[in-house]
Design a protein around this nucleic acid. Sequence first.
DNA 1: TACTTGGTTTCACTTATTAAAACCATTGTT
DNA 2: AACAATGGTTTTAATAAGTGAAACCAAGTA
Lengths: 263, 263
Amino acid sequence: MDKDLADKPDRYTIQTIDKALTLIELLAERGSLSLIELTELLDQPKSSTYRIILTLQNRGFIDRDDEDGKYCLGYKQLMLTRSMLERSSLRTAALAEMKKLSERYGDTVNLGVLVDGEVLYIEILESQHPLRMTDTVGSRSPFHATGIGKAIASQLPEEEARELAERCGLKRLTANTIGEWDRLRAELEAVRARGYALDDQEIVEGARCVAAPVFNLHGKVEGAISLSGAMHRFGADKLDDIAAQVVLAANAVSRKMGYRQIE
Amino acid sequence: MDKDLADKPDRYTIQTIDKALTLIELLAERGSLSLIELTELLDQPKSSTYRIILTLQNRGFIDRDDEDGKYCLGYKQLMLTRSMLERSSLRTAALAEMKKLSERYGDTVNLGVLVDGEVLYIEILESQHPLRMTDTVGSRSPFHATGIGKAIASQLPEEEARELAERCGLKRLTANTIGEWDRLRAELEAVRARGYALDDQEIVEGARCVAAPVFNLHGKVEGAISLSGAMHRFGADKLDDIAAQVVLAANAVSRKMGYRQIE
DNA sequence: TACTTGGTTTCACTTATTAAAACCATTGTT
DNA sequence: AACAATGGTTTTAATAAGTGAAACCAAGTA
C-alpha cells in the first residue's frame, strides 16, 4: 500500500480516540454488541477492542447488559446530554418563542438542528390537540422531507446542500416527498426567497409543517423552528398567518443569539 | 516516585481515551471551556489537548460555542442518549408500571439509578397536581437524601454504601436530612427490612417520597421507582397504601427484568 | 506598531498501544 | 463425563502512534 505517510486520517486525529468514538456510535446504532461483534465491526484485534471497552466501561460511558452480557451505552450519557441541553444557547434562546407559538396555535412546536446530515430535534413542545403526531427529543428525520431540514438547507451553500442530498439519497417517504436533486434545489431556492419552508405531507401523509431558520451571531444557520400538525389545521387560508408568526419567532430567536440582520 | 511499572492506571486503561473522556466530562460540568483552560484542567500539553479536541470535534462529540469560541458538548450527545434510553431494558420495563402509579395517585413518578455515586433520574412522569416539584430526566440528586437513593443503597453491600456516603459527604439539605453515617446505616437497615424507603422532607422542605428498589435477573439492584409529592398528600394514613403500591410496582418491574424472587 | 492571548502546526523522541497468541470460564453437545 | 465451541481476559515484544517543546499565526488591544 502507498505508505508515503500519506492518506493521513486528518493528520491530527488521535486514532485511538477515534476508534473509541466509533465504538460508541456503533453501540448507539445497534443497541448492544459483544466484544467479538465489536472487534469485527471495528476491524481491530480483540485485545485492542477489549481495552477500549474496558476504558469506556470504567468511566461509565458504556455498561454491560445484564441479560446477555453484551455491551451497551451507559447511563452516564444521559448526564452529559442534560448538561449539553441546559447550556445550549440555541435551545435556551428558542424556548420562550416556542412557548408563544405553542400557546397561539396549540400545535406541536419543534426546534431542530442538522447533525450528521439529518435533522435532530433538540426541543419539542407537544401539541394539545387530540390528533397529533409528535417526534421525541433526540429523534431524527431526513432533512429533505422536513420543514426544519429544508429551512436549514436553504441557508447553506449550494455545494453543502448537494452533499447532504447525496448522502441521504433523497428517499421517498410519501407521494409528496421530493426525490430528485433538481426539484429539491429549486425548492430550497424558493424557501430562501420567501424565508420559510413548507412540508406538505412530505414525511407523513396528512401532516403539514411550517419552518423558519434561526441564525447565530455570525449569520450562519444554526437550526430551525417549526410548527407542525394535522393538515386540516394548516389550510391555505391559515398558512400565511402561521408562516408569518413562525418567521417572527425564528427571527426573535436569531436576535437573541446575537444575529443582527444587515440593514 | 516508585516507577516499578506499578501504580498501574488499571493496567489496561487506554490513557488517551481516558483523557478524552475526562475532557468530555469537564465540558459537561463546566459548560464551555477554551483550549487553554482545558489544557490546564487536563494537565496536558497544549498540542495534545488540541488533538484530542480536534478528534472529538470532527466527530461531532464536541462543538464550538459561537459566542466565545470555547468548546462545548455537541448535539451528537443527544442522539446517543436517545438510543441508550430507548434500549434501556430497565426503563422499558418500568414505564408501564410507572404509568399505573401515575394514574392511581396523580403524583410524580420517578425512575432512578445510581451513577457516579448520585441518583440519576432516567424517567419521570410529571405530577398532575398544581403544587408539584419535579426534577427532569437527566438531573441528579444525592443518594442519602432521596427515596430512590436510599432504596438502592439499602440493597448494596454495606461496604459499598459506606463508600458512597464518604464520597458524597452526607451533606445536610434540610433539617431532616440524615447527616451521619451511623444514622444512615440504621436507616438503610430499616429500609431493607420493610422493602421500601421514605424520604420525609430530607431533600426539600414540604416534599415526601416513597421508593422501592428494582432488581435485575441476577438479583442485583438496578434502580428504584418512587412516588413523590407535596407532604400533605403523603400523610401517615395514606403511607401504607402508597408504599404497598410502590413496592408492588417495583416488584412487577423486577419480574419483567427477569428477576425471580427466591421462594 | 508592538504586545498579548489563544489557537494551529511542526517534528524528534519515546512511551503507550498494538496484535498475536495463550489462557480461562462457561455453555452446549455427544 | 469428556469435548468442542464460544466469548471474554491476560501476557508480551515490536513499533506505530501520541507526546511535548517550541515555533508560528491571527485577532484583538493598548
